[in-house]
């Protein structure tokens, strides 16, 4: 470990130690702030499968993920991905249409500007009225959280395509479809992907809230449930898992970006 990276862990380690001491000595009630060691123990316990492994019952992998926390994490991740796919799957084609057609853009842009600032969370009551409880309102909210950032970025991406590429492609004989598929789409892709990265971040926020309200599993549901029993260690452990999951999602998205945009000048220079 280099000196500078050692210095980087100094502050977190010191704070953890202080936290541990404060909780252990009773200076702070463990309900308010349980010691980090207790959180770690609880977190580790949540990770374990509930039953011993039985090859006749299930595959090793599904057993490995049968603990409460992995189960919740998989549920949350599944909702994020499904909602994201739904939201982005609608936003990209609509954005491409609005971006390429000035007529459609002027027709829909005002509506878009009115709807866009409404936080997806504000749709919760309406979502429940429309879809009841369970996965449908949750997916609706997540898709909504994804939809607007992806849509707005896709439109901007298409509209900012440098006219020099259009001119060059026309000069080389490209028709409308080739122009769209091989010039406008790739030229807009850095914007589209930036929108997707924001979108999946929003989706991840929304999934936690949606789970607290509409469903009975997932990480958001679990930490709210723990609150009813005043299990602060479980709450903090759940928050930790949420953080890790968020990191994984953003990291995966970032690597996908780097791969798809490996031609892009901004990445290296």
């Amino acid at each position: 470990m280099t000196l500078s990276s050692f210095r980087g862990v100094l502050v977190p380690l010191g704070l953890l130690l202080l936290w541990e001491v404060l909780s252990r000595t009773g200076a702070v009630s463990p309900v308010v702030l349980p010691p980090p060691s207790a959180v770690a123990v609880k977190w580790w316990a949540g990770l374990q499968p509930a039953l011993p492994y039985d090859p006749g019952q299930e595959s090793y992998l599904s057993w490995l993920f049968s603990g409460e926390m992995p189960h919740d994490a998989v549920s949350s991740l599944g909702r994020v991905l499904a909602g994201f796919a739904l939201g982005a799957g609608l936003a990209v084609p609509i954005g491409l249409m609005l971006g390429t057609s000035d007529g459609l853009y002027s027709l829909f842009n005002p509506l878009l500007q009115v709807l866009r600032p409404i936080p997806p969370i504000a749709y919760i009551p309406l979502a429940i009225v429309w879809f009841g409880l369970g996965n449908p309102p949750a997916l609706f909210l997540i898709a909504l959280g994804t939809f607007f950032p992806v849509l707005v970025n896709t439109i901007a991406g298409v509209r900012q395509v440098d006219s020099i590429y259009i001119r060059a492609a026309r000069n080389l004989g490209a028709g409308r479809w080739t122009m769209f598929r091989r010039v406008i789409l790739p030229a807009a892709s850095p914007f589209v992907l930036a929108g997707m990265r924001i979108g999946i971040g929003t989706a991840f926020i929304v999934v936690i809230v949606a789970e607290m309200i509409a469903v009975s599993d997932g990480l958001g549901y679990r930490i709210l449930e723990a609150r009813e029993y005043m299990w602060s260690d479980k709450i903090i452990g759940g928050m930790l898992t949420i953080g890790i999951l968020g990191l994984i999602i953003d990291g995966a998205m970032s690597r996908l970006n780097d791969h798809l945009l490996r031609w892009h000048r901004g990445l290296e220079r």
């Binding site: 001119r167 060059a168 492609a169 026309r170 000069n171 004989g173 790739p186 892709s189 031609w263 892009h264």
Partner: peptide, 30 residues
């Protein structure tokens, strides 16, 4: 515009998302 009058721009106007060979092949594909 048409490919019978090939244009070379000061700003190059290469498609940055295509490799060199794909850029050169573009007009042939079209």
């Amino acid at each position: 515009p048409g490919p019978d009058r090939g244009m070379v721009f000061q700003e190059y106007a290469l498609f940055p998302w295509m490799s060199v060979e794909d850029n050169i092949r573009f007009g042939l594909d079209v």
